[in-house]
Design a binder for these strands. Structure first.
Length: 586
RNA sequence: GGGGUCGUAGUUAAGUUGGUUAUAACGCCGGCCUGUCACGCCGGAGGGCGUGGGUUCAAGUCCCAUCGGCCCCGCCA
């Protein structure tokens, strides 16, 4: 047995192997010991197959088989045969056959695993502590296999289209703007630090200056920010940059990539080009720049109808520059009075001070605010909302930002509650014409919406001084099912334009030179027009595998507090290590 | 930085208004069993309730603090 080589994967055997002698190696998934005959479900990465130990296989084999426990590592030699009549297991891919064992080797024993691999709801701290066992589960293995195929399809597509993969450094320079950097102390330069890249942004632009023309990389990126269900401190981007291109060129090249990926991973044919929305339109209709367009329930502005109504709260908001908007949940009788009231707490998360609702009846509303409106106002709202009996309308009155965020998120919340989302749908949307910068209340200055190297729409340049918030960017995001899966832009390749942008962002010449001097220098040596995009590989994989957490598509993820429960990273280091780096813990 | 939620045998959970030796299922261990596939039957072991304080005659049950998992807001160019 020790000299035998594996001939097949367990999960790949079928009727066509009937009569063949095979050698299998894998884990004992489950055993059913009848005293006489013993069945073991042998598992490897391809699946399960039932192996049978008959007493007449020989005394050694049979007594050895009695010792088998969960997750023992086995090598078996035996003959594939079609199962006896009526013994098929239709729940099993290999359920029509079984392997009658003639030789067995227990290659390794196993402690009893801390959890069952069949159980779906094991607490995540246990799963993450024993991640190597968690990764034995078929569900997670399936996700990682798919992730690998996605990456392979990506590389194939770019290689076929003349792109070159270039690796960029992990140890780089800390730059202002953007996310918090992960820092790495330098031993040689006391008191100085490298930063792990938030993305290879500047390097890929420099590669365009170098003349590579088409670059891609499947790159790890690091951001020291708080985590979410779809955010990890280290994540993977499909990073792309091209020279001598317009937004249209980049978007259509990327649509081609997605078409290949979805063909390879899901066997689906995307129809191109993908739909587009401008940023302004997305905010107006959906309240978010990453709208989920798998369902309707669009936001409607009713400010003009109610600004002079008898409802003081609405008129006051309108008078002070706010807006009143509404969404309509169709036939929402599933929502109880209690549900309606508790949604107030939900929109409060986004800063809304209240949430009004109205249940539409044949001739009136069931609503706490019904009494404030004249009959024609009620009618006009109903018309504007196209409301029918049984619908429920939700109103938020506040600043435009708070109204958009509250209703945008309420819309999603209601769609989930009312089961309005088709989980099998793929709804892509490009979001275009982003503002180049937005005013940051915390920093009291304009900050880049994307990054400071994004090209403005050139005809908007004069606004840079008069009204910076109105300048549009040559930037685009791609949204899939309400998740931002990628984004990019045409970059600035002209030093004067770059200076103008820096100055609008209140980054001084001196500071710019200090932080990005190398880029500014490079722009003076014949930088071609260029632009690119990056996709979040983890998020793409999440959507394709229908994973609810980014942790389910990453082999060794961190917890929400950015720790690894398996290795116990981060950890303390010795005083000697600190001294070598001239570091002191404060 | 903030809000919410959870933490009880290996695992998943139940534990009433605080009240004798803390339940169940699965798993585990032993025995029996030649066709099961969540095998079956009989028997058994296993935790003191995340941790530390406090209230009380009495604390998984109440209070405070603390640690950890998850979700969200802020943050994420």
């Amino acid at each position: 047995m020790t000299k035998d080589k594996r001939t097949h994967y367990c999960g790949n055997l079928d009727i066509s192997h009937n009569g063949q002698e095979v050698v299998l190696m894998g884990w004992a998934h489950r055993r059913r010991d009848h005293g006489g005959v013993i069945f073991v479900d042998l598992r490897d990465r391809e699946g399960l197959v039932q192996v049978v130990f008959n007493p007449d296989a020989g005394e050694n084999v049979h007594s050895e088989a009695h010792k088998i426990r969960s997750e023992y590592v086995l090598a078996v030699k035996g003959k594939v045969r079609i199962r006896p009549d009526g013994m098929n297991n239709t729940a099993l891919k290999t359920g029509e056959i079984e392997v009658v064992v003639s030789d067995l080797e227990i290659m390794n024993e196993s402690k009893t695993p801390p959890f069952s691999f069949d159980d779906e709801d094991i607490s995540e701290n246990i799963r993450l502590k024993y991640r190597y066992l968690d990764l034995r589960r078929p569900m997670i293995q399936k996700n990682l296999f798919l992730r690998s195929r996605l990456a392979a399809a990506t590389r194939r597509y770019f290689e076929e289209n003349g792109f070159i993969e270039v690796e960029t450094p992990f140890l780089g320079k800390s730059t202002p703007e953007g996310a918090r950097d992960y820092l790495v102390p330098s031993r040689i330069y006391k008191g100085m630090f490298y930063a792990l890249p938030q993305s290879p942004q500047l390097f890929k632009q420099l590669l365009m200056v170098s003349g590579f023309d088409r670059y891609y990389q499947i790159a790890k990126c690091f951001r020291d920010e708080d985590l979410r269900a779809d955010r990890q401190p280290e994540f993977t981007q499909i990073d792309v940059e091209m020279s001598f291109v317009t937004e249209e060129d980049i978007m259509s090249m990327m649509e081609g990539l997605l078409k290949s990926i979805f063909k390879v991973c899901l066997g689906k044919d995307l129809s191109l080009p993908l739909p587009r929305l401008t940023y302004a339109e997305a905010i107006n209709r959906y309240g978010k720049d990453n709208p989920d367009v798998r369902f309707g329930m669009e936001i409607v502005d009713i400010t003009p109808i109610v600004k002079n109504s008898g409802f003081k709260l609405f008129t006051e908001v309108a008078a002070s520059g706010g807006v009143i908007k509404a969404i309509k949940a169709e036939q929402a009788s599933a929502l109880s009075r209690k549900d309606l009231d508790s949604l107030k707490d939900f929109v409060a998360i986004y800063g809304a001070k209240g949430l009004a609702w109205a249940k539409i009846n044949a001739n009136d509303w069931t609503s706490p605010i019904f009494k404030f409106f004249k009959p024609e106002e009620v009618e006009n709202i109903g018309k504007k909302m196209n409301a029918k009996e049984g619908d429920i309308i939700f109103f938020v009155a506040d600043t435009p930002k708070i109204v958009s965020e509250s209703l945008g998120n309420l819309r999603l919340n209601l769609a989930k509650k009312l089961n309005m989302i088709d989980a099998n749908m793929l709804a892509f949307t490009w979001i275009t014409e982003f503002p180049l910068m937005e005013f940051s209340e915390t920093e009291k200055r304009f900050v880049s919406t994307h990054h400071p190297f994004t090209s403005p729409v050139l005809k908007d340049l004069p606004l840079m001084i008069t009204d910076p918030g109105k300048v549009r960017a040559k930037a685009y995001d791609l949204v899939l099912n309400g998740s931002e899966i990628g984004g990019g832009s045409i970059r600035i390749h002209n030093k004067d334009v770059q200076s103008q942008v820096f100055s609008a962002l209140r980054i001084s010449d001196e500071d710019a030179k200090l932080k990005f001097g190398f880029l500014l220098d490079a722009l003076e040596y014949g930088a071609p027009p260029h632009g690119g995009l990056a996709f979040g590989l983890d998020r793409l994989t999440m959507i394709i595998t229908k994973a609810e957490s980014i942790r389910d598509v990453i082999a060794f993820p961190k917890t929400q507090k950015a720790a690894c429960l398996m290795t116990d990273a981060p950890n303390k280091v010795s005083i000697e290590q600190l001294m070598e780096l001239s570091l002191k813990i404060v």
